[in-house]
């Protein structure tokens, strides 16, 4: 796909695309390295609760993060480490949330991928992921009420999430209101252990968009060039006022649902098929083929990312963890509405 771009566009564009591609690759590499680190910490018993990786989904994820800009909104799914980093989430937010540091955005009150900075447009997911789309709608709706234009909100969801009522309600509402929503559907072939044949009966998930009156795009989620182009185009369309856009990416989850899951249910044929390609490897090969980086440079980047991940973990491991006696056990922000019994310490 990038060859088409290269052969038809001017040299300056090629160089811009090369820079974009390289930047995307570096974020993907950092995300994969960080994910591997989390998996290691999990196996060493250093992380409480689940660990959820983005292995195989980095190309799609990073494309979302790069297509968005400051002031936009992003509601990631559980495999969006690459997109989060590209959108601007500090690496420390991820590590602090996984390790329960009180200096992190969730302060040990929520963990792993349940993190975000709502005021900065990065929404902290609840586990009922379909429910996040409507919240993105709400921010976009609020901006419109205040006559703020040019903003885009992206919500990521998996093939399983498209079966929820929340998904249906929110995409329909976004279409009715013509909101600048970009719905990214990562069809990674399994919702936990359930294959797509038990999830939906339409020919392709992208057909759902027709019923809602929403523009749609499909993309090979293993191909970084295609992801950058297609997601970029969808975000551009939304930003220009063409209403909600749905992007369906076909890829394969190259890990368990969580690190507790060995995923022996995954069809070996899928793993061998083009959908089972590792997008990071594909991107690396492409970089080398195009001569945009040599093997030594990629190795240097790899060490750089390992160092970043190690540094972040080493930093956070020295940080304080929550103390139940110091904890503020109150769920309301309005102090005067707290009942006296709730104010008693620990």
């Amino acid at each position: 796909m990038v060859q088409t771009v290269a052969s038809t566009k001017a040299g300056a564009l090629v160089s811009t695309f090369r820079d974009e591609y390289t930047k995307a690759f570096r974020w993907m590499l950092l995300a994969r390295t960080l994910d591997d680190k989390f998996a290691g910490l999990y196996r060493a018993g250093k992380i409480h609760g689940g660990v959820f990786l983005g292995r195989g989904q980095e190309a799609l994820s990073v494309s979302v993060g790069l297509a968005l800009r400051k002031g936009d909104v992003f509601a990631p799914l559980i495999r969006d480490q690459a997109g989060r980093l590209a959108f601007g989430e500090p690496i420390l937010d991820a590590v602090r949330t996984y390790l329960g540091s009180t200096l992190g955005p969730m302060r040990g009150r929520d963990g792993n991928i349940h993190r975000g900075r709502p005021r900065e447009g990065l929404l902290p997911m609840i586990s009922h992921l379909g429910a996040m789309i409507a919240v993105v709608n709400g921010i976009l709706f609020a901006r419109r009420l205040r006559n703020i234009s040019g903003v885009v909100g992206a919500a990521s969801i998996g093939d399983g999430g498209t079966s929820t009522g929340s998904f249906h309600e929110a995409i329909n509402l976004a279409a009715v209101e013509k909101l600048p929503l970009v719905l990214i559907v990562a069809n990674n072939q399994y919702a936990y252990s359930t294959p797509t044949s038990r999830q939906f009966a339409c020919r392709d998930l992208v057909d759902k968009a027709i019923g809602y009156g929403v523009d749609s795009h499909t993309v090979d989620g293993t191909d970084l060039s295609a992801c950058l182009e297609v997601v970029g185009e969808a975000v551009k369309c939304a930003r220009e006022g063409h209403g909600p856009q749905m992007v369906v990416a076909r890829l394969l989850r190259l890990c368990g649902h969580g690190e507790h899951d060995v995923a022996d249910y995954v069809d070996p044929e899928l793993k061998q098929s083009p959908v089972g390609r590792d997008c990071l490897k594909v991107a690396e090969e492409h970089l080398l083929q195009q001569g945009w980086a040599d093997a030594r440079t990629v190795e240097l980047w790899r060490s750089e990312m390992v160092q970043k991940a190690e540094d972040a973990v080493a930093t956070v491991q020295r940080e304080p963890v929550p103390d139940p006696y110091e904890e503020d056990w109150r769920a309301l922000s309005s102090q005067r509405l707290l009942e006296a019994r709730e104010e008693r310490p620990g």
């Binding site: 709502p118 005021r119 929404l123 429910a131 996040m132 789309i133 409507a134 919240v135 993105v136 709608n137 709400g138 921010i139 976009l140 709706f141 609020a142 009420l145 009522g165 929340s166 309600e169 929110a170 329909n172 509402l173």
Partner: peptide, 14 residues
């Protein structure tokens, strides 16, 4: 769409 209505309100409040 009660789910989407309340979700929208939450987003707007954020």
């Amino acid at each position: 769409s009660e789910d989407a209505i309340i979700g929208l309100a939450i987003g707007a409040a954020i």
